[in-house]
Structures are given as C-alpha cells and as structure tokens.
C-alpha cells in the first residue's frame, strides 16, 4: 500500500498538470504537504480562505473571469459549503474543482471528526454533487491522472466536481 506522502506527491503531480493560476485552501494537517508545495509554486497565487463557502464564491468569480483555479479543502467542512454550492455554481452551471481530503477512516486520530466525515459521500449524493474518490483501492500510478481527469470532467459537465482523496492510508 502506498504511504500517505506518496499519495500527496501524486496529488501534487495531478494539480501541477492542471497548472492553476490560483489555489485556495483551508487549513488541514493531512493536506499540509500539498498546500506547502502550492505556496512555494512560482506563478501560482495560493491563499487561505477562512470558510468553505467563501471559496465557492471566489472560485466562481475566477471561473467567470476565465482564470484557472483549484480549491483544496477537508471533508469535515463540506457542510459549510452546500448552500453556496447548490444555489450558485450548480444552479448557474459554473465549473469548479475541489480536492477534498478524507478524514474519519482508518488511521484517524480524532475522536469525533468521523461523525460528519463518514457521511460525506451520503451528503454529497443527497445534494447531487458529483465526486470521484481516490483511496487504497486505486493504484498509486492512477492518482495523478485522475486529478487531471476529474478537473476536466468539471469543465465537460459545466458543474462543480470534487475529488475525495484519502491521504491517511485508508
């Protein structure tokens, strides 16, 4: 099984292939390698957003302006963005791409985060939000290409797409 740092490197490789001008991120201990890489990346403006729904709005504005952007968030914040996501980019057919770190599974160290994280797929299904998943069932050599493909799928289908990535070993 691939180690988490190998998985993070694969996600970085995938985001590099997208070559975003802007990267928005929430704080996340599991995403730290990816966020730090993007902060150091030349010609990419990487900045923090304090809440997920704020990212929904900023991503939408960037997309309407023709700027390439990616958001990096953690799945326990999904509840914050659903109303913004469904009432604006989904309703207006504005593509967006989110890399979403999974929590609450194998190797989890937090005693309560699983309560929402274990239900994230159900929540996204109920809201009709399209997502793909990368975890231990996916060969590591498929991770980076999947990042690019999931991003492309958001453009092809004119809507937000999330890529749920398990960086904790599950």
């Amino acid at each position: 099984m691939a180690e988490p740092d190998e998985r993070s490197r694969a996600i970085i490789e995938g985001i590099e292939s997208i070559d975003p001008r802007y990267v928005l991120h929430l704080p996340s201990s599991t995403l730290v390698e990816i966020i730090n890489h993007m902060l150091d990346r030349p010609n990419t403006i990487t900045f923090p957003i304090p809440r997920e729904e704020e990212g929904v709005g900023i991503l939408a504005g960037l997309e309407l302006a023709g700027a390439k952007a990616v958001a990096i968030i953690q799945d326990n914040g999904i509840g914050n963005l659903l109303t913004a996501l469904t009432t604006f980019p989904m309703a207006y057919h504005i593509p967006q791409f989110y890399v979403v770190s999974r929590r609450g599974g194998l190797n989890e160290y937090n005693s309560m985060i699983h309560i929402i994280c274990e239900k994230v797929e159900d929540i996204l299904d109920a809201a009709d939000v399209r997502y793909f998943s990368l975890d231990g069932r996916t060969p590591i050599d498929q991770w980076a290409p999947t990042v690019q493909k999931a991003y492309d799928y958001s453009r092809v289908t004119h809507r937000p797409v999330m890529l749920l990535v398990n960086l904790m070993g599950g």
Partner: peptide
C-alpha cells in the same frame, strides 16, 4: 438569485481574474 452573502466573494474572484 439566491446566494445571500456570497456576492463579495464572487466579486473578489472576478476582480482578481
């Protein structure tokens, strides 16, 4: 139409882009 509170964030993204 129905995203109360979101316009400043949309405007920020647009202004950057």
């Amino acid at each position: 139409l129905d995203s109360m509170g979101l316009p400043p964030a949309i405007g920020l993204g647009l202004a950057m882009g």
